[in-house]
Design a protein around this nucleic acid. Structure first.
Lengths: 205, 205
DNA sequence: TTACTGCTGTGATTTCTGTCACATTGTGAG
DNA sequence: CTCACAATGTGACAGAAATCACAGCAGTAA
């Protein structure tokens, strides 16, 4: 896979550095890319596939924050990288994914030397911050039914298809809810002709 | 007020630019500094007082995100400024406050020229992102009683004193809850000897 | 003082969500 | 086909929080 077409704006010198120093890694669906508490040694740039970023608490609760698709980077890994902190989130490959790992030590230099990199980082911050804001909005102001609709819509947008191939249990985990609640709400949505339910698959209408 | 002592790390050239181009503004407690949907023309740097950053939704619901104290900047205004977007949050002075307004146009240049400014911006991003993460944690994983305790603790930390001079109604607004719920939970906390309740004031023990 | 207003306390009721229990159904391994 | 198991459907119940209703209380202005 030629990653350069994902970042046409990057200038030659920057591309050269990345080619020389960054490592491309493959992850299978389900693989953990970054774990809560782990020390961050590189910034992750998604080239292919889909990566799920979520928060985990001590009692085993999970909470989905957002997805990263091709051309997107993990703001947390950038922030941590720049300050050598440990991760506060989990990153897991939702599909088989290709990720470019850029060593921490390069970040500072790249930020200073390459305007396009600097712009990319700023843009990444803004993007993730905005997504986090809409997550806050949802859990602060919305009930589970609306949050579920938002979840499904976001999923189809990110995955680029109208079907959601996951179980009710997984959705419940992502929303930090319970399977029964999700099943019931989905049934109601089916009665309103918003979705069609199948086994391990939900069709958005 | 001499703002320079708040930012001892800033290099001379940077200080000079800020002195020349930035405008210092005073706000009274309760004044709105930035409003949802407003176009952002400058980055806000708090010199004195306390500024409350919160989210508002269309039905009049509010939700406190965090406070800014002396030496802190609004990450949202930086992000928006750098990309000329409109604000997605509300900023209100909680106490009488002094705020340094740095025009948007200078940001790019300052980021490139002054390493200490660049570091300050990065540090601001990380700080706000972290706070937003802990906000998400709280509403996603905690019940109202724990959220209330967190709220009171954070308030006293930010205000630098053990008393909270606001009404139950205001707390309810900040937590997007209702006055009765907060009153009841506070009563329970009083029975556990965690607080002492007064009119318009709560004493943290 | 009296009257008014805003803050606080508290019970009753309802809604939403989480939890438990168990039935049913789809699917793949053998 | 049959068995095992995972996914889903559903009723009953519990608990947290929102809402409604109203009473008491503190401070303030006249």
């Amino acid at each position: 896979m030629n990653w350069k077409q994902l970042f046409p704006q990057f200038e030659p010198g920057l591309i050269e550095i990345i080619e020389k120093e960054a490592v491309q890694r493959s992850f299978n669906a389900g693989d953990i890319i970054m774990r809560t508490g782990q020390y961050i040694k590189s910034t992750a740039l998604v080239l292919e596939g889909r990566v799920k970023i979520y928060r985990e608490n001590q009692d085993g609760g999970e909470f989905l924050m957002y997805y990263l698709g091709p051309g997107q980077a993990c703001a947390v890994s950038m922030i941590c990288a720049l300050q050598s902190h440990t991760s506060e989130i989990m990153a897991v490959a939702e599909e088989d994914s290709e990720v470019l790992m850029i060593p921490v030590q390069l970040m500072d230099d790249m930020m200073n030397k390459y305007k396009t990199w600097y712009q990319f980082v700023i843009q990444t911050y803004r993007g993730r911050f905005d997504e986090l804001l809409s997550v806050v909005d949802n859990i602060a102001f919305r009930n589970m039914d609306e949050r579920l609709e938002f979840y499904l819509k976001r999923y189809t947008e990110k995955a680029g298809k109208k079907t959601i191939d996951i179980s009710h249990q997984q959705i419940a985990d992502d929303l930090n809810s319970s399977r029964e609640v999700i099943s019931r709400l989905l049934k109601k949505m089916e009665q309103r002709n918003l979705v069609k339910l199948h086994r391990n698959m939900i069709e958005l209408l």
